[in-house]
Computed example of a mutant assay.
Amino acid sequence: MVKVVFSRMKGGDICPPRKPLSKVVWSWLGAFLGMYLIAILSSFTEVNILKSMFLVGSFGASAVLIYGAPQAEFSQPRNLIGGHIISAFIGVSLQKYLVLDIALLGALAVSFSIVAMHFTRTLHPPGGATALIAIIGTAEVHSNGYYFVISPVAIGTLILLAIALVVNNLSRDPLRHYPRYWL
């Protein structure tokens, strides 16, 4: 059994080729515009951008997916929005109602989020980070309770989605058009 497990770790395929420069540029443009728009809108609501509720670390990972790999299943709108919102709700709920060690709460938040995203067909890897942020976040994050699900999570994902819809469909490459599906 151990030998089989280790033999599977060798892999078998070769690394795929580098993407063409045009795809790299479109990915850069989308990520830049999406993250910058969130930061700008955030600056209207907060004095200190570093304390801003709009900037959630997991949005950076979402940007990689929706702008860098817009055709991936994890990148589709239902996954982006559903994955973040479901995971934020789970993280906030656990943080609010369970008095456990932070390490245990974090593990529960991520693992329950994965299960919920699987059941709802909204698997979005950055969602796990969103759940974890709800647990390990600052006192400000915790004091917002379920409002964290709306702002920054829902609002931020909608901003990222709007930019993805525009930028990914400006390309003439039909393999870049976004989304592949909504529901």
Rank of each mutant, 00 (worst) to 15 (best):
K3H: 12
K3S: 14
V4M: 04
V4C: 12
V5C: 01
V5Q: 02
V5M: 03
R8P: 01
M9Q: 04
K10F: 07
G11Y: 09
G12E: 06
R18P: 02
R18F: 07
R18S: 11
K19N: 01
L21H: 06
S22H: 07
K23P: 00
K23C: 00
V24A: 06
V25H: 02
W26V: 04
W28D: 01
W28R: 00
L29D: 01
L29F: 02
G30K: 13
F32A: 15
L33Y: 00
Y36W: 11
Y36Q: 08
Y36D: 05
L37C: 12
L37D: 05
I38R: 07
A39M: 14
I40P: 05
L41A: 02
S42W: 13
S43E: 15
S43I: 15
F44T: 15
F44R: 13
F44M: 15
T45V: 09
V47S: 14
V47L: 15
N48P: 04
I49P: 15
L50A: 08
L50F: 05
K51M: 07
M53Q: 14
F54Q: 14
F54R: 12
F54L: 15
L55C: 14
V56R: 12
F59M: 11
S62P: 00
A63T: 11
L65W: 03
L65A: 08
I66W: 12
I66E: 07
I66H: 14
G68T: 01
G68Y: 03
Q71G: 08
R78S: 01
N79A: 09
L80H: 09
L80G: 09
L80I: 08
I81N: 02
I81E: 05
I81Q: 04
G82A: 04
G82E: 02
F89G: 04
I90K: 12
G91T: 09
V92L: 14
V92Q: 08
L94N: 10
V99D: 15
L100I: 11
D101S: 14
L104M: 12
L105P: 07
A109H: 05
S111I: 10
F112I: 02
S113D: 06
V115G: 01
A116R: 10
M117H: 09
H118N: 09
F119A: 01
R121V: 08
R121T: 14
T122P: 09
P125T: 14
P126G: 13
A129R: 10
A131E: 07
A131S: 13
G137C: 13
G137W: 01
T138V: 08
E140S: 13
E140R: 14
E140K: 14
H142K: 14
H142V: 04
S143Q: 10
Y147G: 10
I150G: 10
I150W: 08
S151K: 10
V153D: 05
L158E: 06
I159N: 02
A162M: 05
A162W: 10
I163Q: 03
A164G: 05
V166L: 10
V167K: 04
V167L: 07
N168A: 07
N169D: 04
S171C: 09
S171H: 03
R172I: 09
R172E: 15
R172S: 12
D173W: 00
R176Y: 00
R176S: 00
H177M: 04
Y178Q: 07
P179K: 07
W182L: 10
L183A: 13
